[in-house]
Amino acid sequence: MVTETKEAKNSNAKTGTLLVKKALPQMLKSGVIMDVVNAEQAKIAEAAGAVAVMALERVPADIRANGGVARMSDPELIIQIKEAVSIPVMAKARIGHFVEAQILESLGVDCIDESEVLTPADEEFHIDKSKFQIPFVCGARNLGEALRRIGEGAAMMRTKGEAGTGDVVEAVRHARTILGEIRKLTVLPKEELMTYAKNIGAPFEIILQVAETGKLPVVNFAAGGIATPADAALMMQLGVDGVFVGSGIFKSGNPQKRAEAIVKATTFYNDPAVLAEVSRNLGEPMVGRTVQSLSEAETLAKRGW
């Protein structure tokens, strides 16, 4: 275990800068981040080639099935997971719950997911993420939502999708919406940008940046409903930088094999022969639930503002 007390000895060294926070997700690109609920699952994920693990108390499918208030994990569990693996460890805090985020930062997690999968703690405001030394990832359904989170200091974005369903339809919708809105933004004349920013509720400065570069200023992953290698490759071909897989792995019949297959599919997303090979004999996928069958109260993606 690496000591956590080491101080930067060079006098000009700076930690927690925006560059340093945005860089961690850059190292995870073309990779798979896997939800894990204990150290044993974290080891399986690492051995399968995950670039990071997301520690949480219950995977979204169980949160859905069991109901109740979903909160940050027990710190003991996060410590055990950190000790079990050498890859980055992320953990989820409730939307707006900046004290959960403070606790996760003090535990030494590498990135915090301010997540709609947990029960929101604030129905109006998100966490001021710029205050923290470590990066945050947040979910979004459209460009306005993504740019508001980036304005608050998020160093990484992901689609919300509809977690815990095994149905990729919402992740596709959100990726197409965000990437499509970016494409449109690049062809708008400059005099229309302020009104556009107002209409989608996004910070004007970031709108200018996206209009010029044609991409988000942070790494953008897919999440929410990815359950198969083909789902992961679909999201990559749509143009995201990598994928989160939640319930899809450890709610399936053969987690190790499925995890390895999704890792390969994310790298070789453009190669149908590889995708066919890795998709063979994976055992039972997670049972899943169509997003259409969910009632209004059961959808998680609408959480966040």
Binding site: V2, E4, A8
Partner: peptide, 16 residues
Amino acid sequence: RRNAFGSQKFSREESL
């Protein structure tokens, strides 16, 4: 030595 600086909160920038 992997992760020689520790977790992400010890990631840093400097000049040399």
